[in-house]
């Protein structure tokens, strides 16, 4: 009978589902999800952490904060979450998945242009109209929300050719010289200083972006997660963040 075969298949499926649980004796991996703009700084901090914790490896997952928050709220196995906006962190706290989120850094926006500044961009005012092709983040993601806030504060407007899903996409388009200008965080400009030129925005400090870090409630290694957060908020992590261009929280 077909029904019998289906029952056997269902049992096999359950057996498969059960074999993925950790046995506890293997090497421990700490899963850290962090906003794209933290790529360089958190990679260095993770190296420090692994040096201090033999046998522990840190798995870093960088993406747009909203996508990371979405993953955590959907039950992804994440121990530490660091977002580039307090709003995004709020969606995780509201879902009951964040343990004590705390600010650890700030970032400000800047204009990046391809090396040599071919379009002659000198400030935000040059980014309106169709002469200068500009890439910015979509307003739905933190860097885009910060861009919108900055434009509102300065009264300037930008005519973008693309609203990208994360800040690294904007930067990549400037590095590839496919756009004349992009609005990114100063930390992104600092990390690619050899490939792009920076045109600072004097008013950028009026709309800083807060970075928050938290342990995820379902973390399988809460003590390690807290250790990692202590490293980020402590002198070592803060020095790494300052070197990358982040401001104090």
């Amino acid at each position: 009978m077909t029904a019998g075969r289906v029952a056997v298949a269902a049992a096999a499926l359950l057996a498969l589902a059960g074999c993925g649980s950790p046995s506890g004796t293997e090497a421990v991996t700490l899963n850290v999800s962090a906003a794209s703009s933290l790529t360089e700084a958190f990679t260095r901090i993770a190296d420090e952490f692994e040096a201090d914790h033999p046998g522990i490896s840190v798995a870093l997952n960088f993406a747009g904060s909203s996508a990371l928050a979405e993953q955590v709220n959907a039950g992804a196995p994440v121990d530490v979450l660091a977002t580039a906006s307090s709003e995004t962190m709020t969606t995780v706290s509201d879902a009951g998945n964040a343990v004590d989120p705390r600010p650890f850094a700030t970032n400000v926006l800047t204009i990046v242009v391809p090396s040599g500044n071919p379009a002659g961009v000198s400030g935000l005012a040059d980014l309106s109209g169709s002469d200068v092709r500009t890439a910015i983040c979509a307003p739905e993601v933190p860097c885009g929300a910060a861009t919108a806030a900055l434009l509102a504060a300065t009264g300037e407007s930008v005519d973008a050719v693309t609203l990208d899903p994360d800040v690294k996409s904007v930067l990549a388009r400037v590095v590839a010289d496919e756009v004349d200008a992009g609005i990114v965080y100063v930390t992104d400009a600092r990390a690619t200083v050899d490939k792009v030129d920076e045109v600072p925005i004097p008013e950028a400090g009026t709309a800083p972006t807060d970075y928050l870090v938290t342990r995820v409630i379902d973390s399988g290694s809460p003590d390690l997660a807290d250790d990692f957060i202590a490293l980020v908020t402590g002198p070592t992590g803060q020095q790494v963040l300052r070197d990358a261009g982040f401001g104090p929280s």
Partner: peptide
């Protein structure tokens, strides 16, 4: 092509953008 409403943001790109909000 990038992602801009009405010019390059097709349905799948709209799905991805909507996922954020």
């Amino acid at each position: 092509a990038g992602s801009f409403p009405g010019i390059t943001r097709t349905m799948p790109l709209a799905v991805y953008a909507a996922l954020d909000v």
